[in-house]
């Protein structure tokens, strides 16, 4: 699933975008930095000491690259179509997503449901805790001091910056993640999706809708 794009009115200059639509970041051809030097040194020391192997590090990277918001979207689509699954998911999300085959490790996963009257949004004020097993690595903005500072203080203003304008009649619940407890927002199923199958529904579920900073796509 492609990443979500926020139209904040910024000109990103779409000259050099990667296949996922983001600018490439200078990598191998830029001058070596101190911290890159440290990464190489740490990795080689751990390999020389027999703590790890190059293959283990590479396998970890590949496992991480394989995780994407499509995993979370499949969970949400199942919840939209299978009331018994949804009940299990909201009661205890960890075993519910494991039954779909997703490895979430020892984490306590909590699924929170958006309705006509409640909108949930997740943040990690301490660092960058995120349901990475279901959504992949967190987006840059999730890790910024601006998002982490303000989401717990003025969530409606933050959500408005993401284009989510909520009426006062909707209660906003902010969930602060921890190292051991991660949240997944189950967005409300959009109107006009009656009769759509799970796969078609999953395509409507954006990454940001599962963080709470977005809403699902409307059916075409």
């Amino acid at each position: 699933m492609p990443h979500d794009h926020h139209d904040h009115g910024h000109d990103h200059g779409h000259d050099h975008l990667s296949p996922s639509g983001h600018p490439f970041r200078a990598d191998n051809d830029a001058p070596l930095t101190y911290w890159q030097t440290m990464e190489i040194a740490v990795r080689e020391l751990l390999i020389e000491k027999g703590v790890t192997t190059a293959a283990e590090v590479q396998a970890q990277i590949e496992a991480m690259d394989a995780r994407s918001p499509a995993n979370g979207a499949a969970v949400v689509a199942r919840a939209w179509t299978d009331p018994a699954f949804k009940a299990r998911l909201l009661a205890d999300a960890s075993p519910a997503v494991r039954e779909m085959g997703f490895d979430i490790g020892p984490l306590k996963l909590v699924a929170v449901e958006n309705t006509d009257t409640v909108h949930n949004v997740i943040v990690c004020t301490l660092c960058s805790c995120y349901p990475r097993n279901l959504l992949g690595l967190p987006p840059d903005w999730y890790k910024t001091r601006e998002y982490r500072s303000r989401t717990v203080k003025e969530p409606r203003k933050v959500l408005a910056e993401f284009g989510v304008d909520l009426p006062d009649s909707v209660t906003v619940r902010v969930h602060d993640s921890t190292a051991d407890m991660r949240y997944l927002v189950v967005p409300a199923r959009p109107a006009g999706t009656e009769g759509m199958d799970e796969a078609a529904l999953a395509a409507l579920v954006t990454r940001d809708s599962m963080i709470g900073t977005g809403l699902p796509r409307r059916p075409a």
């Binding site: 904040h8 983001h22 970041r25 004020t125 500072s149 303000r150």
Partner: peptide, 23 residues
């Protein structure tokens, strides 16, 4: 950090560089 004042949330995203993935 949580609860402090700060400016607008910067919307940028980038694909991670190899060295970042390795970290």
């Amino acid at each position: 950090m949580g609860g402090q004042d700060a400016g607008p949330v910067p919307p940028g995203e980038h694909d991670f560089a190899l060295w970042e993935k390795r970290v």
